[in-house]
Write a protein that binds this DNA or RNA. Structure first.
Length: 420
DNA sequence: TCTGGGGTCCTAGGACCC
DNA sequence: TCTGGGGTCCTAGGACCC
């Protein structure tokens, strides 16, 4: 089968978080549909989480942007209704949507919490023409789950994704290679997947303002200015992209991390250590849940001036131990911190491998086995009785949550990649 | 009244080895 | 005492996605 004979769909939820919350409220008996008024899912400014995460379509008239502060949004629209995020609900909605979609093909890839790729190649005999099948998918999601999606259809993932963006909400759109000139090339350069706020100005400075102009540009010049990323977006502008719909249940994770803004400025070492421990608890739990061990530990912080820096270390033998990861994270922090007030902390582990053939070192902690047993015992208690059932005495009265970050379960929640 | 959290990938520079 | 170039690994930071 030649690549151009593939049939790929991209299913994209419209205003996902807001739509999920709105649909849920209607199901709970609320008479107001948040999607019909200027409304948004947003954080809590008092805990310094005050940004817009998702907005309703009526917000467009007020020029409210995702990612901007609630304060700025209220300036634009004083009647704006804000609802708090509900991540467990979003995971449920996402999974329910996938259950419907997988009725239409065994080959599907969860790309993010609100986007799925479906390989519809060879499925016509079962569900008909791709456009008809897409309408069936879209309507089933609307009728059964109460929110709308936009579906793009093409011969590869990039064009399918671009297609789903062309018409919103509640729409089905094709963007086959022969339609690029008409449907995609007139679009602004920043509408192309993988051209962000940093690359767009560089292209504009070269006189390239539309996707079509990028497609017509000199590849050597683009490559010279933008290196391999230049070649990538040049190919995308021509609709060239050949990655597979990764069906495997187990997409290998490259890393696991938690990070959080702290509601107050942190300027003492002890508090910083507690925060790192709290972040490490969830990171290590997710690591063990994925049956992995990690070889690279990194810590990142952001100060009150929004300067971010990080410090990382490769360790000799990979680990999944909360205590071990914490000890390294703490050392990394102590080495990097210059004493200024901090507002944001992150702990991340990467270079993962299966814990099956864990290499042991002569120098390993003699308490290693005891530590492992303790980690597993705590994991199972938290699994059975909830994540708040067990935590360390050090957190009592500290004002810091014992377990920070880490949404839901890792089950089948595959990872988004910048390369499709 | 400020500015989230989860990821992936790429590049540059220095260390180190041959 | 002065001198090379290539390859690989490690680390920090930045760009992009949702």
């Amino acid at each position: 089968m030649s690549p151009s004979n593939r049939c790929i769909m991209h299913i994209d939820c419209n205003s996902a978080f807001l739509a999920f919350s709105a649909a849920h409220r209607l199901q709970q008996g609320d008479s107001l549909d948040l999607r019909t008024i200027p409304s948004a899912v947003g954080g809590n400014p008092e805990t310094r989480h005050g940004i817009i995460l998702a907005k309703s379509i009526p917000c467009k008239a007020f020029n409210i942007q995702t990612g901007e502060t609630l304060h700025a949004a209220f300036q634009k629209c004083p009647t704006l209704v804000i609802v708090p995020p509900d991540y467990p609900l979003y995971v449920k909605c996402s999974n329910a949507m996938m259950e419907i979609i997988k009725d239409f093909s065994p080959a599907y890839q969860k790309f993010s919490i609100d986007e799925i790729f479906l390989d519809y190649t060879n499925m016509q005999k079962h569900f008909g023409h791709p456009v008809d099948a897409a309408h069936k998918i879209k309507d089933r999601i609307k009728n059964e789950l109460g929110f709308t999606v936009s579906i793009g259809i093409s011969s590869n993932k990039l064009l399918a994704k671009m297609a789903s963006d062309l018409k919103k909400p509640d729409a089905v759109t094709t963007l086959y290679p022969e339609e690029m000139a008409q449907k995609m090339w007139p679009l602004d350069i920043q509408d192309l997947f993988m051209i962000g706020p940093c690359t767009a100005p560089k292209l504009r400075a070269m006189g390239i303002n539309t996707i079509g102009e990028l497609a017509a540009a000199d590849l050597n010049l683009i490559r010279y200015r933008l290196k391999s990323h230049g070649e990538l977006i040049y190919n995308y502008a021509h609709g060239i992209e050949a990655s597979l719909v990764h069906t495997g249940k187990h997409i290998d994770m490259k890393g696991i991390g938690n990070s959080s803004v702290i509601p107050f400025d942190v300027d003492d070492r002890l508090t910083a250590h507690q925060i790192l421990l709290s972040l490490t608890e969830t990171v290590a739990m997710r690591l063990r849940d994925a049956a992995c061990v990690a070889r690279l530990i990194s810590v990142s912080v952001r100060d009150t001036n929004f300067r971010t820096y990080s410090h990382q270390r490769k360790i000799f033998s990979a680990t999944d131990s909360t205590n071990e990861i914490y000890r390294i994270a703490r050392d990394l922090f102590d080495e990097a911190w210059q004493g200024e007030a901090l507002r944001h902390f992150g702990v991340r582990v990467s270079e993962l491998c299966s814990n099956e053939f864990q290499q042991t070192s002569f120098f390993d902690d003699v308490h290693k086995e005891k530590n492992q047993a303790l980690d597993r015992a705590i994991d199972s208690l938290r699994f059975r009785f909830g994540s708040t059932s067990v935590h360390r005495a050090g957190f009592l009265n500290s004002g810091i949550k014992p377990l920070m970050g880490g949404i839901g379960s890792t089950d089948e929640m595959s990872v988004m990649t910048s390369i499709l």
